[in-house]
Simulated scan of single mutants.
Amino acid sequence: MILSTKGRYGLKAVFELSLNYGEGPVTLKKICDKYEISENYLEQLFAKLKKAGYIVSTRGAYGGYSLAKQPQDVTVGMILRTLEGEITTSECLNKDVCRRESVCATRTIWSKIEKSINDVIDNITLLDMIDEHHKITAED
């Protein structure tokens, strides 16, 4: 399973907002320049995140985007699911009943992998990412 640019770029952009939490809005241009993301593309991602209630926009000369919630209240899973949809390892897990479920040797494996992924992304908050970032940058 590979996340699309929606999830990867969106998480980077929201992480940038979390780094600046409480310091005022961050311009789209600043985020796009830092992460080399198209402004048009990021606007589309932010529209989804805004609609979901994770970010807010401020108009005007000092406008931009900010987190709508505290970093410790937003998980990686929340952001990824908003942008990507449900995270799954196999289409067979999305069906209510697979015709071959009773004889499928791999379904259990896909299910365990999916559960592990969801456990990770649902238990890492933006604050955890900030803490990890500070550890990495302190080592430099």
Rank of each mutant, 00 (worst) to 15 (best):
I37H: 12
K50H: 09
P25H: 02
K29G: 13
I31E: 12
G64N: 04
L80V: 10
K69G: 00
N40L: 09
D96S: 10
Y35I: 08
E23K: 15
G64E: 06
E86G: 00
K51M: 07
D33M: 06
A68M: 14
L83V: 08
G60V: 13
R81G: 00
S90D: 14
P25K: 03
G63W: 05
F46D: 05
K95N: 00
T88I: 07
V76W: 01
K48T: 02
L83E: 10
G63I: 08
S38T: 09
Y41G: 01
I31W: 02
V26A: 10
Y35D: 07
S90G: 03
V26N: 03
L93Y: 09
A47S: 13
N40W: 02
K30Q: 14
N40I: 07
S57P: 01
A61D: 12
Q72N: 06
G63S: 08
E39A: 14
A68E: 11
G77F: 01
P71H: 09
A47F: 12
R59A: 14
Y54T: 10
G63C: 08
A68W: 05
V97G: 01
L45E: 11
V26G: 02
Q70H: 15
S66N: 12
L45I: 14
I79K: 11
Y62G: 12
L80F: 02
K34P: 00
E39T: 13
E23S: 13
D73L: 12
G85Q: 08
R99E: 13
K95P: 00
I37N: 12
I79P: 02
V76Q: 10
C32W: 08
Y35T: 07
C92L: 06
K48I: 03
Y54E: 04
K30P: 00
G60M: 05
D96L: 13
D73M: 07
F46E: 01
K48A: 03
V76A: 03
E86W: 01
C32F: 09
I87K: 01
L80K: 08
C98K: 01
L83W: 02
T58H: 14
K50G: 05
K51I: 06
Y65V: 05
C98S: 09
T27F: 06
R99P: 06
S90P: 01
L80E: 03
C32N: 14
V74T: 10
K34G: 03
I55R: 02
S38A: 14
T58C: 04
I87T: 00
R99N: 05
L49E: 02
G77D: 12
S38C: 11
K48P: 00
L80M: 11
G60I: 11
G60F: 03
K48E: 13
I87R: 10
E43Q: 14
K51L: 13
E36N: 15
Y54A: 04
T27M: 08
L93D: 07
K50N: 12
Q44D: 06
L49C: 02
Y54K: 03
L45W: 01
S90W: 10
T89N: 09
G64R: 06
V26Q: 05
Y62F: 11
K50T: 06
L42T: 11
L28R: 15
L67W: 11
R81D: 03
K69N: 12
G77P: 00
E91V: 04
T88M: 04
T58P: 00
L42C: 13
K29Y: 14
D33H: 07
V26S: 13
L67R: 04
F46W: 01
P71F: 09
G24V: 13
T88W: 11
